[in-house]
Each structure stands twice: as C-alpha cells, then as structure tokens.
Nucleic acid binder design. Structure first.
Length: 276
DNA sequence: GCCCAGGTATAAA
DNA sequence: TTTATACATGGG
C-alpha cells in the first residue's frame, strides 16, 4: 500500500475491500456527508474529503503524516477484510450473503469519546435524528476546523448542565451525555483502558455511566476502541438473530463478531422485508 | 392523532 | 429474575 502526496492531499493505493458509502454511512459514524462525489467529515480534529476511484483512495485536505497517524487506523486499512469475509462466511449461509451484499464495509476506529457519546445519543432514536443532534452538539460546543466543527471533548462538556444542552434537542439523553462527560473527564471511567481490559470488565467500566447499557457499551467498544469481538445487539439484530440464526448466540460469531454484526445490520436495513 | 427509532432506568410482579 | 412502562423529539 503506497501513499503519495498531491497538491491538496494524499492518494493511497491499492486499497481493497473498501466502499465509502457502506463504511461511512452504515450507522457506525454519524458525521460523514456526501460531498462532491465523495464523503466529507471530521475525525480527530481534521476535516477531510475522501474519494475512491477503483482501488485508489484520495484523502483531500490531508498529508502523509496524518494518513499514517490517523486515517490508516481510522479506516482499519491493515486488516485484510477479504479474509474476514471468508472467515465469517463460513459461519452461516445468511452471513455469507450479508457479507457479499456489502463487501466494502470496514469497522472504523473512531475517537473513543465520540463513539461513546454518539451511541448514548443513539438510544431509542433514529439515524437521521441522531445525525442532527450530533451536528448541533459539534456546532454548539466543538472547536472550528475548516468549514466544520470538531466533536467537543468530554472536558468541554463536563462543566455544563443538561439544560445547557437544550439547543441540541437530545431530549432525555442530555443528562446521560453530561454524566458520561463528567465520569470520563474525571477518570472515574477509564475510557482509554477499555481498549485492553478484558471484554466483560471493559463493558462494566462503561456501564458505570447513566444511560449506558450493554448495547451502547458494545458500540463504544466496537467503533471507538476497536474491540471487534464486541457484538452489539439492537432491535434489528435481535429480530435478525431470532429469524435467521435461531440456533446461534453472540458467542458463536467468533473473533470477528463485531464485523459480522455490521454486515448483518446493514443487510437487514436494506432488506427489512426479510425481518418481519 | 399513532407508531417507531442502532435502549435504558425504574418499578412492579 | 423477568416483564412493563416512561422517556424527548421528529419523521412517516
């Protein structure tokens, strides 16, 4: 995989098993928008536009250093997803179909705090509205970068009260966001340690936060701390499990459970009629 | 108006 | 231990 700089960014090739729409707009990050034939968004304080032409990935408004420090890991480019698909496809024929349906899904390595916070917002909510709330949160409290705003840090939100978040219209989740910000910034919840703690302990650590149950904890672990063994089960997955995998439990999905879950989640969203 | 949305806290059985 | 309900908001 080679990375070379051009006027306004970097181009990387070859990049296989990546589809930007499937990866950036499949319900794991809520901060990417279609823009000029690609996707524009902010992560780790950098606003970039990503475009894909065949097996060449263009990251505009970036450089070699940021690619190595941020985007390489963000897009999980060092994991061979062709092998992952082979592996999970062996588990179940429906999983094979789901993986073949969206072979360009990759699990993002997002900022842990952003993943935690956005999935707190996600509870009993829909993706369109989650995006709106997250966008207002960034515009209202994040620092500017380029034409957009960074995700506000836990330290920035910790001194606020739930009422201060009224403008973002997060509803009952506002107090959960503040509780999370306080516990993360004070170190009462050691978010960084959740990358290496045993899985059950990492889950418990996050569930010290009000409004964080098993689903939100698993999403934060999977999308923010790259614990790909985490297996978030939401209402869709519950239905999919009952309907399509009645003989399997979360443990049967193996080391790539989180990735398998995302194939199924995306597939089930695209084919809701199969999940009545 | 009613129902639902990448759930969880709380109370009651 | 399991099951029912409220929760804020907005789109269908």
């Amino acid at each position: 995989m080679k990375c070379v700089e051009f006027e306004n960014g970097v181009k990387i090739s070859p990049v296989r098993d990546l589809n930007l729409a499937e990866t950036l707009d499949c319900g794991q990050s809520f901060r990417w928008e279609e823009y000029d034939g690609g996707y524009r968004g902010v992560a780790f304080g950098r606003e970039v536009t990503m475009k894909l032409d065949g097996e060449t990935l263009f990251i505009e408004n970036s450089d070699k250093k940021d690619f190595e420090n941020i985007w390489r890991a963000y897009l999980d480019l060092d994991l061979d997803y062709s092998k992952v698909r082979e592996s999970v496809s062996r588990l179940h024929p429906v999983l094979e179909e789901a993986a073949r349906y969206a072979p360009g899904i990759r699990i993002l390595r997002q900022e842990p705090w952003e993943a935690l916070c956005t999935f707190i917002i996600s509870q009993n909510n829909n993706i369109k509205r989650i995006k709106g709330i997250v966008s207002r949160l960034c515009e209202g409290f994040g620092e500017r970068t380029g034409s957009s705003y960074c995700f506000p840090s836990a330290e920035r939100l910790a001194p606020l009260s739930p009422d201060d978040l009224a403008p973002i219209r997060a509803g009952f989740r506002a107090r959960y966001i503040i509780d999370a910000a306080r516990k993360v910034s004070s170190g009462e919840v050691r978010l960084g340690d959740c990358a290496t703690l045993p899985y059950e302990q990492a889950r418990s650590e996050l569930m010290k936060i009000k409004g964080v149950g098993v689903k939100v904890a698993d999403c934060a672990l999977l999308f923010g701390l790259h614990r790909i063994e985490a297996f978030p089960v939401d209402v869709w997955m519950k239905r999919a499990m009952e309907r399509l995998f009645p003989d399997m439990t979360a443990d049967d999905f193996g080391e790539y459970a989180g990735i398998a879950q995302q194939y199924i989640f995306h597939f089930s969203r695209m084919h809701p009629e199969l999940f009545v």
